[in-house]
């Protein structure tokens, strides 16, 4: 099986890459929303992320990727108690997917042919402890969106249908991508994404040449290319693992909290989720940079991606909310 295009070989797109690394360091930040035109490397980045992430320990064959034996749901009927290393799951949620497929449903074949009431786990089960990737998230049907909102909020998937009553953990990082020209995202779903980034094609010819050179090398000279970039990927993976450890001991000063609160107040961001996400993102960024406390630099760096989708819509501001955030950040943090 061919590995996906390596994460570190993606040219430019620093903000998108950073946002993904931050959620890998601290999954509780929430998801990442990537908005941009077609052919800007959104899907490539998400698929690359899967290969980059550190492996997880899971009970072999567990449908919800449980870490410990006692977490395995009783309907799974597992024989082994052995655990093994597995790659972090990255699950695709395609457009037009049925509710049954997302939440899981009664295993109809078993019900009809063997008269057995069994549960067939869905995509949410598969995505537990990993990533759920939705391409063209803005075209997703409303009832699937509702369902995702509910699960993303509670971290638990509850199936009550056809005589089944089953619940299983479903904690995942939502990654959505889409093209804003084709439709907007409901504010409720927008708010669920921790970070939001806008991507565009690289602006300089040199960068673009790099993009096609690397992609071409990946496709024609796969072996050598992977050897070259695997080392870089391992480096980033190491940084993520170190940061995951460091984040627990990282100090949050009152000054930083005041800065964050002031920033959100000034921007008029709705709700308190903005503050919390900004704090978490800044902390993860500080850990990534191997600093010991959150400073203004960290807040400044992550403020646009943590806040740009939480501003009230200004229909005439074509410049994008990112610019507005940066402006206010400059005002507040100097």
């Amino acid at each position: 099986m061919k590995q996906p295009f390596p994460f570190s070989a993606i040219v430019g797109q620093e903000e998108m890459k950073l946002s993904m690394i931050l959620t890998a360091i601290d999954p509780s930040i929430g998801g990442v929303l990537v908005f941009g035109d077609r052919g800007t490397g959104k899907s490539t980045a998400v698929r690359a992320l899967a290969a980059l992430l550190p492996q997880i320990t899971k009970i072999s064959g567990c449908p919800v990727n449980s870490e410990k034996v006692e977490d395995v749901p009783d309907w799974a009927k597992l024989e082994t108690k052995k655990s093994s290393l597995a790659p972090t799951p990255v699950v695709d949620l395609p457009l037009g997917v049925t509710e049954d497929r997302v939440t899981g449903a009664l295993d109809i074949e078993k019900a009809l042919s063997q008269g057995e009431k069994a549960f067939q786990p869905g995509l949410l089960a598969k995505a537990n402890r990993g990533y759920l990737y939705i391409d063209e998230v803005n075209l997703l049907e409303d009832h699937i969106v509702d369902l995702l909102l509910d699960v993303a909020q509670s971290g638990e998937n509850v199936v009550e249908r056809e005589g089944l009553s089953i619940r299983h953990p479903a904690r995942f990082v939502l990654v959505g991508s889409g093209n804003p020209e084709e439709g907007e995202l409901r504010p409720q779903l927008l708010d669920r994404f921790g970070l939001s980034v806008d991507v565009a094609s690289p602006k300089t010819v040199a960068e673009r040449v790099d993009v096609i050179k690397r992609r071409d090398a990946f496709e024609t000279d796969y072996e050598a290319f992977m050897v070259r970039w695997k080392a870089e990927d391992a480096l980033v993976r190491g940084q993520i693992e170190t940061a995951r450890g460091a984040i627990k001991t990282l100090k949050t000063t009152d000054a930083a909290l005041t800065d964050i609160a002031e920033l959100c107040l000034k921007l008029g961001a709705d709700g308190l989720r903005g503050e919390l996400t900004l704090l978490k993102a800044a902390r993860a960024f500080a850990a990534y940079r191997e600093d010991t406390a959150i400073g203004r630099d960290h807040i400044r760096a992550v403020a646009p991606m943590a806040l740009r989708h939480r501003l009230r819509r200004d229909p005439l501001d074509d410049a994008g909310s990112g610019v507005r955030v940066t402006r206010v950040v400059e005002d507040v943090l100097g």
Partner: peptide, 18 residues
């Protein structure tokens, strides 16, 4: 590579797949 990228830029093609 340079020719192709330059060409895309002139024709206003943003997608990197092109």
């Amino acid at each position: 590579y340079e020719t192709l990228v330059g060409l895309c830029a002139q024709l206003g093609i943003n997608s990197q797949r092109a």
